[in-house]
């Protein structure tokens, strides 16, 4: 036995790729002598992040809080609306075009209206996060309900099952993998929504901080903000991904997701 330990390349791959990206970035800045106010090197960005550490931390927490509030609203509202739409084909037919229409509106166009109604601050940010992220939840839950196997419905209906029985015993459990799958998408969208609103009309949050840094020509800090956003985004996605596999293990039996 010469080989007792081998490297798990699948586990190492994301770390290697990330480190590789920063190394290439650093080298590119050095070799091509890119000025720091165009593209600061990662070391310079890291220094800015350390320099403005407390402010960056507080604003990140603010953005996190805003995103999660909007996301929570989206879960509650999306779940209810999804169940309502998926309940009956007529409701589905009536509301689906409206939903598509609503979702097609760029949310950046909605922020000014929210500011008009609620003023600048955290409320438009929470609402933007909510508005942008509830759609995938609704669509997925409704799809889960609408795609019950007709045979299953026949078996139960022939036994005298009411619509409520079919929904609670088959429809709702069946739509759960769709629901948890949509949360990964929704959390990312909620994050986009809150940052979007913060860059337009807020006095705190990473989005607002970026805007301030930009107007002060603190380019490394702008990039530090971007990286902070990326880290938060990955973290929230990872949590939702974990929740998904955890809650609906039966739907992940291919082994691909393990």
């Amino acid at each position: 036995m010469t080989k007792t330990r081998s490297i798990d390349w699948i586990k190492a791959a994301p770390w290697l790729a990330t480190i590789g990206l920063f190394v290439i970035w650093e080298l590119a800045c050095l070799v091509f002598q890119i000025p720091w106010f165009i593209l600061p090197a990662p070391t310079r960005v890291a220094y800015a992040a350390w320099e403005f550490g407390p402010a960056l931390w507080n604003n990140s927490l603010q953005t996190l809080w805003t995103t999660l509030s909007g996301f929570a609203l989206a879960i509650v509202f999306g779940l209810f609306l999804g169940l309502f739409i998926g309940w009956d084909r007529r409701i589905y037919a009536a509301l689906y075009p409206l939903m598509i229409g609503f979702n097609s509106i760029p949310k950046v166009a909605v922020v000014p209206i929210l500011v008009l109604w609620f003023g600048t601050g955290w409320i438009p940010a929470v609402l933007t996060a909510f508005l942008i992220s509830f759609f995938p939840i609704v669509v997925n839950v409704a799809t889960g309900l609408a795609t019950i196997e007709p045979e299953m419905e026949d078996v139960l209906r022939a036994l005298g099952a009411k619509k409520l029985d079919i929904m609670t015993k088959v429809g709702i459990p069946r739509s759960m993998p769709y629901f948890f799958g949509s949360l990964k998408v929704a959390i990312t969208l909620a994050f986009i929504g809150s940052v979007l609103s913060e860059t337009i009309a807020a006095n705190s949050g990473v989005g607002h901080m970026m805007l301030t840094a930009q107007s002060n020509f603190e380019v490394p800090l702008v990039f530090a903000c971007l990286i902070a956003l990326a880290i938060e985004g990955i973290g929230m996605y990872a949590i939702m991904s974990w929740v998904e596999v955890r809650m609906t293990g039966w739907a992940h039996r291919s082994g691909f997701n393990r």
Partner: peptide, 17 residues
Amino acid sequence: PVSITGMAFQNPVMLPW
């Protein structure tokens, strides 16, 4: 619906959860 019936189809349609 006649609830004294049982039904089976070509597709076994079991609930995977």
